[in-house]
Simulated assay, not measured.
Amino acid sequence: MLKALFSTAALAILFSTAAQAAEPGVTVTTPCPFGDCKAAIELSFAGEYTIPTGTLFDGVEFGGLSGIDYDPVRNRYIAISDDRSERAPARFYELSIEATAAGITDVKVVKTVTLKDRNGEAFAAKSVDPESIRLAKDGIYWSSEGDVKQLLPPFVRVASLDGAFLREFELPKAFLPTADKSAGIRDNLAFEGLATLPGGDLMVEVESALFQDGPISGLGRGTLARMIRYDAATGKRQAEYVYPIAPIPQAPTVEKGYNDNGASEILGLDDHRLLVVERGFAQGFGNSIKVFMVDTEGATDVSAIPSLANADAGIVPVRKAQVLDMQAIGLKSDNIEAVTFAKGTDGSDLLVFASDNNFSKEQKTQFIAFKVLRRP
């Protein structure tokens, strides 16, 4: 395994490129998602770029990317690491990515920014679990999954560009962790996705069902995850919707192996349509990455419903349609947990994904780019 140490931010991280099974230029078209032809989307695979686990930047292992967003003003990306302040203080990176409709040719780490707590200090080890990040007009929105074992609640906070705490969004009581696990978030399945919407709202999605909302996905059973709609300016909840997560798509191929499926990230298209990444995994098989378009128009506001599993009235979930299956186009994807729209250096409109390598030698940090030919 290659390792590198760079003392200046302008140098590129050492990288490796892997052979691609998917052919650049392969196009995926969904002309009428959930019967809505105004929501047509068309993507063309551009290419991928990988960074091996173990690569260092300024003496700290690079990896754990769980969220990414694009800054069009500076033509830079911000990417958050889900390291729980164990290898280094909780942080996000500023990246320079050379990407065009022809592929990704370079990824550089420009700098590391330490996230600060309410007291202006770096987070202590295991006191935070960063997961998603979005750039907005008033700062950087980022989420933490919390920790059920420690009864640490999840949160969405706003930070300045230098990582300083500015404010925090309100947390509905239903999401608070409980010692008896009768309600609230599940460990490692909480605030995994953030999406800023053009009208000024922020969407937050849990990775899987809250305890009171039923069991998580199984091989023959899907589950219901909540999406919170916030007024981003005030941090106040406006509504909650139900997103139906699919059953686990693949059984493990090893004896007593592990498998799962959940929503690993969301991305805004307009004020009511979003993309949702579902990331499935099965030991011995690998990852299954599918992208869905959803529409919140007409969906039931479930913010006043304490339990989706025991709801008295009927619930209408968000509309949902698959728009991409990475495996189906021959793309061997890693643990995709991050996605953003971006502008390529050639002016192309791009959709860029990134993977969380879990700091594992068996995984890698992978960037995947698609050219966006059509979108709502």
Rank of each mutant, 00 (worst) to 15 (best):
S85Y: 10
S85K: 09
E86C: 14
A88C: 11
P89H: 14
P89T: 11
A90F: 09
R91Q: 11
F92E: 02
E94G: 13
L95A: 13
S96F: 02
I97D: 06
I97G: 02
I97K: 05
E98M: 10
A99V: 07
I104F: 04
K108E: 00
K108F: 04
V110M: 11
K111T: 12
V113H: 01
R118W: 02
R118L: 06
A124E: 14
A124I: 07
A125R: 15
A125K: 13
A125L: 12
A125P: 06
K126Y: 13
S127M: 08
V128F: 08
P130R: 05
R134C: 10
A136W: 12
G139Q: 10
I140L: 12
W142F: 15
W142N: 10
S144D: 10
E145I: 08
G146L: 06
V148A: 11
L152D: 09
L152M: 14
P154M: 11
F155K: 04
F155P: 11
R157C: 13
A159T: 07
S160W: 11
L161V: 06
L161W: 07
G163I: 01
G163R: 02
A164M: 05
L166K: 08
L166C: 05
R167T: 03
F169A: 05
F169Y: 04
E170M: 12
L171P: 08
L171T: 12
P172L: 00
P177S: 05
T178E: 14
T178M: 14
A179Y: 08
D180Y: 06
K181D: 05
S182A: 14
A183E: 11
G184W: 01
I185T: 12
D187S: 15
D187L: 12
D187K: 15
N188G: 01
N188D: 02
N188C: 01
A190E: 06
G193E: 04
L194G: 03
L194M: 08
L194K: 08
L194R: 04
A195E: 00
A195G: 00
L197V: 01
P198Q: 05
G199H: 08
G200L: 07
D201P: 07
L202R: 03
M203G: 01
M203E: 08
M203K: 00
M203T: 08
M203S: 04
V204P: 03
V206Q: 04
S208K: 15
A209V: 10
L210A: 15
L210C: 11
L210D: 11
F211V: 05
F211K: 08
D213Q: 03
G214D: 02
G214C: 09
I216C: 00
I216S: 02
S217A: 14
G218N: 03
G218V: 04
G218C: 03
G220H: 11
L224H: 02
